[in-house]
Nucleic acid binder design. Structure first.
Lengths: 116, 116
DNA sequence: CCTAGCCATCGATCGATGTCAGTATCTACC
DNA sequence: GGTAGATACTGACATCGATCGATGGCTAGG
């Protein structure tokens, strides 16, 4: 299953017995954020004005090679957590809060109601 | 870094720039739930009365070999998401809602307040 | 078009991890 | 203590994935 397909399946884990397909989809989505580099990317981008940043401002603070950063950005984008937009020479990545919220909601306990 | 150490670092990802150590700790915690088998284990256990179940009732519905299930239960336990307790011949695993909530809170956006 | 700068892709490497068969350990019961 | 059942551990295998150097493609400006 592709990451894009996976990101759409975000039924809460703890409300009903997870089927194989739903579990695989959710696992794919969580795998996207289960990496130190990608978590730092999300964190750095979220901290920028407008929750967006261009690649040139991410490589240095992450301390990873440019191809590695590009790879991580791709994974996050395919998971729906980031959105790409080209502006001239630069490529900007923007946080997609709805997708973050969906992942967050997947961890809600049965007693918890959805929250913004 | 061990999974046990990792589970204690759960600062929100999107509120401040994540340092290397915090990022690694959080990634370790998310890795624990970034697996279809482990997500289904959490789901199945959460659906049982008292949010607990013995291994003998988990192997069959998961469709994985008993050593594999045991391995996944170990990973989840070391991540603090499950607690073990022996009752006679059987080993019971219980969901730890606080830890689930901590992971969930790590995905809170800057505008979101902590919720139960 | 030619250059310079930014970013993505490719290919290779290597450690991490999911899986299982086999086996060991532990508990209860007789 | 010997047996039976439940669970954990070991070792091996195959696959996945993070990383990087090299390279290719794209854009802006001259």
């Amino acid at each position: 299953m592709s990451i894009k397909q996976a990101a759409r399946r975000c039924a809460p884990v703890l409300h009903a017995r997870l089927g194989r397909d739903d579990a695989e989809a959710l696992a794919t989505a969580f795998k996207a954020i289960a990496d130190p580099g990608r978590l730092r990317l999300l964190s750095f981008i979220a901290g920028q004005p407008g929750a967006e940043a261009c690649v040139c401002n991410l490589v240095r603070p992450l301390g990873l090679a440019q191809p590695t950063v590009s790879h991580h950005l791709r994974v996050l984008t395919e998971a729906g957590l980031l959105a790409r937009e080209r502006r001239g020479t630069w490529m900007f990545y923007r946080l997609v809060p709805e997708r973050v919220g969906a992942l967050r909601q997947a961890l809600a306990l049965p007693s918890e109601k959805p929250s913004a």
